[in-house]
Each structure stands twice: as C-alpha cells, then as structure tokens.
Design a protein around this nucleic acid. Structure first.
Length: 580
DNA sequence: GCCGTTTTCGGCCCGACTGTTTTCAGTCG
C-alpha cells in the first residue's frame, strides 16, 4: 500500500467519522495525518519498518498503531467498523458542494445513500421537506450533482494561470482598483488547481463585483456579499473574488494565499503572541484593538518572522524555519543559464535546431541541449544512429553561426527499454555531449521491475540525466509505481542528475520528490522538454516546482555556467574530452 | 486524536455568505 492509498483511507475515515457526528477535532486529526502521509516524500512502508511513524507530523500513538495494522494487514479495526456502518455512497454525497456532514447524515437518516438516490429525491421535490432545507438548496444540490459528474477534479497550473491572468487584467482596470493578485493554490504554484481565488484592493468593492460577474466566462453567480463573490464559469470551474480596502491588503493576501494548513499554523502562532489574525486585520486579544496591515511582508514582520515565499506555504516546516532564520534562498528563473531537454523536427518537435536555438537566445539562455528521441520510440519519430549523425552536423552549423551567444549541445533522450537496457549502444552514447534517459513504455510494470529498469539506467556511466522520472501526466495519468527512495539514492551515489520537467503536463519531479532528492544529495536540473521554440518560455513552471521543493540555485545544475556544468558531470566523462 | 517558549490536560483559526430562519445552522475556504 503506497502513501497515496494510505492518505485516501485516512481521509475517507475522517469523512465517515464526521458524518457519524464524531468529535470534530478527532476528524481533523485524521485529515492532518492524511495530508502528512500524502506529502511525505518517503515510502510510508519504509518509515514504518524503521519504527519512525511517530515522527510524522500529526501522527501520535493511536494513529501510528492504526497505520502499522493498515500496512501489515490492509486495514484496522476502526476503518473496518466505519466501512461497515457508513455506506460508501454517503461519503460520495459528502463531496457534493452544499452537502456537508450534517446534511449527509440527515439524508442518510431519510434513506438517501448515494448521489443517484439524492438526484432522484431532488427531482421529486422531496428534499425541500427536510428540516433546514428548501427549494433553493434542493435545486442547487441537483445542479451540483451534475457538475461533479462532468467536471474534472482539478486543472493543470498551465491552464489555470493564463485564465486567472485574463480575469485579473480586466479587474486591474476597474476604477479605484489599487492591486490585484491571484491567491490560493495558484499563487503557491501547485501543479494542479481546484478553484481560482482572485484578490483585489479597492476602496469601493461594488464596481469590482459588477465587472467580475459580467465576465463572458461566467455561467452563474453562486454567492455575492459586500466583500466576497463566487461565480461558476462555463467550464464548471469556480472562481472566488474578495475585495478589501488597500489598507487591509496585507492580511487579505496572506489569508487567501493559504494553504489552509499554513494559515492555521500561522494564526495559532499569532495567538501565542497575543494576536488574533484574520483576513481583515490583527486584533490584540487583550484589548480588542484592531491593526490593519497593507503589505504582506508586514503581516509576517509583526509576528517576528521574515516573509515566507508562497511556494513554501504548505505547513511543511516553513514557519519553524522562518523562526530559526533558516528559510532557503530559493532558485529564481533568472538563475537558469541553460535548458537541457528539447526536441526538434528530427523527432517529434515542430521547430528546427536553428529555430530552437534562436528561441533560447531570445530567452537569454547561454546553452541548450537538443535531445530528440531514440530509435525505438516510433510514435515520436525516434532517430536512427544515421539521423543522429545528420543532426550533429546541423547543430555544429548553428554553433558556428551563433558563436559566443549560445552553445548548443548535441544530446539525445534515449529510451530505457523494457529490460532496463538502453536504446543505443554505449559507444554511440559516449560520443554525445549529453545523454538523457527516460521511460515512455512499460510505466505500469510492477514496482520492482520498473524500479530495477530505472536504477540500471542510472548506473550506466553514459547516462547524465533522468528525464521526467515518474512519467506522470496531469491531471490524469498516475506516476509509475517507482521506489523513489531507491531511485534517488542510486542517483545520489552515481551523480546522475534528476530532471524537474517544466512542461505543465508533467512537472516531474514534483515538489515532494524535489525536496526528498535534495535531502539525499541528488543533483537536479530544470528543463522544458520544449517541442516548439515558444515552449522554452515554460521554464518558469519548472522553477515554481523547484521552489516548492525548497530548492536553492546551488541545488540546480543548470544555474551553472556551461564550463562548470560540464566539468561537474558524471564520472568526469567530459573532463577528458574537448568540447568547447 | 494531537500536542506543549502559556498547557502532559485542555485547549485545538477565523470569518463571509446563504437560506431558512424570527436568531441561526450549515457550508465553504
């Protein structure tokens, strides 16, 4: 059982207990433990074997015992009981908007135990008769059942960010508006986004709200008050808007950037200093005096903390690090000097070597690697050794033309075959400037097998980089079932570089593995995997993922100048070779 | 159920909005 499955069970248990009316703090404890396990970065089975379950945040004696049973036998007593007592469909109902634990319980008591039964009851007008419910709730619930069925859970960052920018651009120009920003998971640059949160500073909220609900993308207004407004777009996505006067911008932005866990922790920390923190202001608990804060930096400063970058705000130790003055100096986009994975018309790219190189110059990069696919990947136009040799001639011509402006490395993205060998012979790989290896097939192999393939590629002296290590695709394709600690440990031992793939469909490694890789001493790089020249512009998504994993510039090898990067490569393979 | 530069027991973040209500419960983020 992997971390995600364990987290899913803990969350389902929390749902079940909540519907049963169990103590809310107990429910909260299970959810917190679920989040910790989900974001652990280590295999929970390894942690259990090492007897270190109690070191996980939010896991105490009781939950540790339950986890031990869960990992050993596949279940534990309380989970068995809750599954027996609460129908699975009731938990599904709980995930429909406007249905919380109280209503789910109420519906269950009236014989409604699945979304289908709930929809039927709503259509027959039976819900309005229940206490605390009426026609409006009934209609909303019916609409929400359909919404949940047709809308994907979350959308990729690369879809949500441009959409949010488009909306913000309009709001920015409304009269009286001083500042606009996207908050929530978008500002924290999570790989996928649920709802979009927009924040505005303006003395007058009404015109902002008017402009907001008038967007052509808006299908329905869910809620509208004096400071807060929520709408649903035609694509099913919810967008929340909050407007406060500029004097309160600091607390507003801090509050709605989240994460929820970071916010709760920070507000607890504030209370320990005698301050109650909300989106509106600080309040001095003793006197009730209210303090407005216009800048987010000053929210943290008033608590004696340095400003914490949004990407770190997941309650994964950043508040403690801030207290200790040990926040990492995170890598930034302008630190990157090269892009080490991209494709051209020699395989499945849309641009020539020259076009990609010119694109890189426009982005102010100093070096790139052309890394088209190897022969066996037929669907992506994999290259024969002869084609590879032809490409090399073209690369040299571009290098001659660009001179000191840009250095183009001749590389390849070589397939790791089903038996763990590589798609080109070692002699051929030895002649290239850079070798990236990756998995595109057999991603669903059993854990041991796929891990063994990956580790054997890592142990090949000619493999410099492993690209998109887990093979996940957002939002739908799960990562391969790799033993990532084994993979990362092998990478650390051999000096093999792990890629942070900046394509927003991938963002792989993700933040959790980036952080684990750094802990284990693995060298990392950020590349776009671009298939057209403007794809190089996506480097920023990879930087965001690296920052979420607490990466400094020192942790990322393509922040190095080319000569130092080449010298640092595996086994000193370039030390004996003249390349510049 | 967790946890401790207020606490090993008694706390556990904070507020907006809606709908069904004559003062508040439920949901959400």
């Amino acid at each position: 059982m992997n971390n995600q499955e364990v987290a899913r069970i803990l969350n389902a248990l929390a749902d079940g207990l909540e519907v049963q009316g169990e103590n809310l703090y107990k429910v909260l404890a299970y959810r917190k433990a679920a989040t910790s396990v989900h974001d652990l970065g280590r295999d929970i089975n390894d942690v259990a074997r090492a007897g270190e379950l109690r070191t996980i945040q939010g896991v105490g004696e009781a939950i540790a015992q339950k986890l031990e049973s869960l990992l050993a036998t596949g279940s534990f007593d309380l989970w068995d009981r809750v599954q027996r007592e609460v129908p699975a469909g009731v938990l599904e109902i709980l995930h429909i908007p406007d249905v919380g634990p109280r209503r789910a319980k109420l519906l269950w008591e009236h014989g409604v135990t699945s979304p289908a039964e709930l929809a039927e009851a709503a259509r027959q007008g039976k819900l309005r008769a229940l206490p605390g419910m009426g026609e409006k709730i009934e209609a909303r619930i019916l609409a929400n059942i359909e919404l949940v069925a047709r809308r994907p859970d979350r959308i990729p960052l690369g879809v949500a960010l441009p959409l949010a920018e488009e909306l913000l651009d309009v709001l920015r120009h409304v009269k009286g508006v001083r500042r606009v920003e996207a908050g929530g998971s978008l500002r924290r640059r999570q790989a996928t986004i649920g709802d979009i949160d927009l924040l505005v500073a303006s003395a007058d909220a009404a015109p902002v709200m008017d402009a907001f609900v008038a967007f052509p993308q808006v299908a329905a207004v869910i809620a509208r008050g004096p400071t807060k407004c929520a709408v649903q777009l035609h694509n099913g996505r919810q967008v929340d808007l909050r407007v406060l006067p500029p004097a309160q911008w600091g607390t507003l932005l801090q509050y709605f950037t989240g994460s929820k866990e970071h916010g709760i922790h920070l507000r607890e920390f504030a209370l320990s200093k005698g301050l109650s923190l909300s989106d509106n202001s600080f309040k001095v608990v003793k006197t009730g005096r209210e303090i407005f804060v216009a800048e987010e930096e000053d929210v943290y400063a008033r608590l004696g903390l340095p400003w914490i970058p949004p990407e770190l705000r997941e309650d994964r130790g950043e508040i403690e690090a801030a207290q200790a003055g040990e926040l990492p100096d995170l890598v930034e986009l302008h630190d990157l000097k090269g892009d080490l994975q991209m494709h051209t018309v020699f395989s499945d790219g849309k641009a020539t070597v020259a076009e990609m190189a010119d694109g890189a110059v426009r982005r102010k990069l100093k070096y790139i690697a052309i890394t088209d696919h190897s022969q066996s990947l037929g669907v992506a136009g994999g290259m024969s050794p002869e084609r590879l040799a032809e490409q090399r001639v073209e690369i040299e011509a571009v290098n001659a033309r660009l001179g000191a402006k840009l250095r183009v490395l001749a590389g390849v993205e070589v397939e790791i075959l089903k038996d763990g060998t590589l798609d080109y012979p070692d002699e051929l790989l030895a002649g290239l400037d850079l070798v990236i290896a990756s998995l595109h097939t057999g991603l669903r192999q059993p854990r041991e097998q796929v891990t063994r393939r990956m580790v054997s590629a890592i142990r090949n002296l000619h493999v410099d980089i492993i690209a998109h290590p887990t093979g996940r695709l957002l939002p739908d394709r799960d990562p391969a079932d790799l033993d990532m600690d084994a993979v990362l440990t092998a990478a650390a031992e051999t000096g093999t570089i792990m890629e942070i793939n900046a394509d927003w469909h991938r963002l792989d490694l993700d933040d959790v593995y980036v952080r684990r890789a750094i802990e284990l001493g693995v060298r990392l790089e950020i590349s776009t995997d671009a298939h057209r020249a403007d794809g190089i512009g996506d480097l920023g998504y990879g930087v965001s993922m690296a920052r979420r994993g607490w990466a400094t510039a020192e942790a990322i090898v393509n922040t190095l100048p080319l000569s130092r990067f080449l010298k640092s490569m595996k086994g000193g393979r370039h030390a004996q070779r003249v390349i510049l």
